[in-house]
Design a binder for these strands. Structure first.
Lengths: 335, 335
DNA sequence: CATCAACTGTGATACGTTTCACCGCATGCA
DNA sequence: TGCATGCGGTGAAACGTATCACAGTTGATG
């Protein structure tokens, strides 16, 4: 493997000069510059990033830990972050925790070991252990959608409690009295918030019941399975309103219902999802949902990290909270 | 920042012993082990990955370059890769080229500088420059969906030519005579293949026309725009069959058609997409499509990289070609 | 009792950079 | 001429780890 040393000797200069060429080229004489450039090309030299990092101690790599990538919502957010990162001269590494806190922990540890530029956490299930790690190491960290979870990190989030409350209140206004919350994995912070909001809405109206149906994943497939499970019950046990933890789930459930029964949406069961992914509007029955702005989300998370990283002294914690918007479509419109 | 040196002195051992503790703990006496462990905990020591890499020269990080993450297909593939990587004790870093070959080039260069374990390329638009780079540096590299593009790298791919040919032949059998191919960004290898397949099918039948409609992105939104553009033409200029470059596009187009006209799908226009993402089956009109197995895809790409990386001598190039499957649903079923 | 192997721990070296104090030299100015 | 200034280049010292030959100790074996 060819190193800076080889380049130096081939160009008849010292190692220091080659390094200068690499980092502050304007401080190298034109003639020398040419020689070094040629040597690099001839040898096919490529800087060893590990060595650079070790010595310089800084990195331009921003890490984004997503909960799962099969949800298009995260894909869109990731793409938005990538654009913003590029504008700031940063690189964005995305990892998927695939729903496992242990795995996420491994990744965070690796990022800490790499001394990355910063970390954006959107898994909603980061363990205290890793949060402590990031905090004590002073690694610029931003939490996505963990509103109120911590006073140590900056965050961007949508007020999921409010969003869920609005969604369920809407269902109740449409006449629903038995509401099922699907996707109740309370490990995940966002989901827990949505459940809390749903319950608040239900509690505010007498005569309304809330049932919780957990799922393993939050994919279309999981929604299908949940829907089929639901249908296997007696007709009288069915809810008349469904609030799903995200759109993928909702779409899966609606598909199961329309394929496996003559139950009508929204007349017999009204459905509301969460996120407003692009596929929500084009579902068999266009899906009512709670919109979370993806572009803003991604952009502001990157900005928050950058501000922290570029600032000399520690910045005060900042929390950006975005209001969610209820989008009513056919799947819940009864009037 | 606390280093291995601090740990050593606090535990009253040499640096070498601490390193041994970190890498081959079974060669350290239980008593010493305890002392070192305590010192590490007390000091909050964390290994510096850059230094480790510099010295050891090896990494456990696999890089996946995706074309775009807003397409759920890539998200699913990425999740599948992540699972396989975890099984092999590897880390998976995902990056999105966001449709820009320059940006992709930057990432590849950075991966080469980092001496990553391996690289999986799925952008379909990797430049020759970067391919050469990876090849000469002997970085284990696998191409996804670049069947026949190179004889230097192993690859997993779906035969997109065949898939497209089948899709369009199916449209013709359903009576379509004027077919539009939507998403014609020929820069991207996969898309170019699909276009080639579509043309082959059209050429094999007399009296059938093929129109190409390019789009900037390949998202639902882009499909909506393309659909609206289509509708703005006179009714007699409309195609009677649409083959979209992917499902997101197809779903967007169908949505535009059903919202902005009384044109019926499939009676007036039959539509076929590509990928069979989970949302295809649950679209307003369930979407016919060409299925690409996502799980197998992700898994085998990781395996190919691993085989190369673990092998002492260079392995012969291997190409895994998967047959695509045409899934006929309502959007193209006229009989 | 001598020998040998297994087991622990040591210290020096190397990995490929960046950085920084320093030096020689030419230039401009009084 | 004397002196400050700035430019272009040098060489050595880190950065934090892994590795490896080697040494000391112990227990078993013949």
């Amino acid at each position: 493997m060819v190193s800076i040393r080889d380049v130096a000797s081939r160009a008849n200069v010292s190692i220091g000069t080659v390094s200068k060429y690499l980092n502050t080229p304007h401080r190298v004489a034109p003639d020398t510059k040419k020689r070094i450039g040629k040597a690099i090309k001839d040898l096919g030299y490529m800087r060893n990033e590990a060595a650079r990092q070790l010595r310089a101690g800084e990195s331009k790599t921003l890490a984004f830990v997503a909960l799962e990538l099969n949800n298009p919502f995260f894909g869109d957010v990731a793409d938005a972050m990538e654009r913003r990162a590029a504008q700031n001269g940063l690189f964005l590494f995305i990892v998927s925790s695939n729903g496992s806190p242990e795995r996420e922990g491994q990744y965070i540890e690796m990022f800490a070991q790499q001394r990355v530029y910063g970390v954006i956490l959107a898994s909603g299930m980061t363990r205290q252990r890793e949060l402590d790690l990031l905090f004590t190491r002073r690694i610029p960290t931003v939490l996505v959608d963990a509103y109120g979870k911590t006073d140590r990190f900056s965050s961007t989030s949508v007020d999921d409690f409010l969003g869920a409350e609005r969604a369920v209140t809407h269902l109740i206004e449409q006449g629903c009295r038995s509401i099922a919350f699907i996707g109740g994995e309370v490990q995940i912070h966002q989901i827990a918030e949505r459940l809390r909001g749903a319950r608040a809405a239900v509690d505010a109206h007498s005569g309304v019941r809330l049932t919780i149906i957990p799922t393993v994943e939050r994919s279309v497939r999981a929604g299908l399975a949940a829907g089929e499970h639901l249908l296997s019950k007696g007709r009288q046990d069915l809810p008349d309103g469904i609030f799903a933890a995200n759109d993928s789930l909702a779409i899966g459930i609606m598909q199961a219902i329309s394929a496996g029964s003559d139950i009508r949406i929204p007349e017999d069961i009204a459905v509301v999802g969460y996120d407003d992914i692009d596929f929500a509007a084009s579902a068999a029955v266009p899906l009512s949902t709670v919109r979370r702005p993806r572009e803003v989300f991604g952009r502001s998370a990157v900005d928050l990290v950058r501000d922290q990283a570029e600032s000399a002294e520690p910045l005060p914690v900042r929390s950006i909270v975005i209001q969610p918007e209820l989008i009513v479509r056919q799947s819940s419109r009864r009037t």
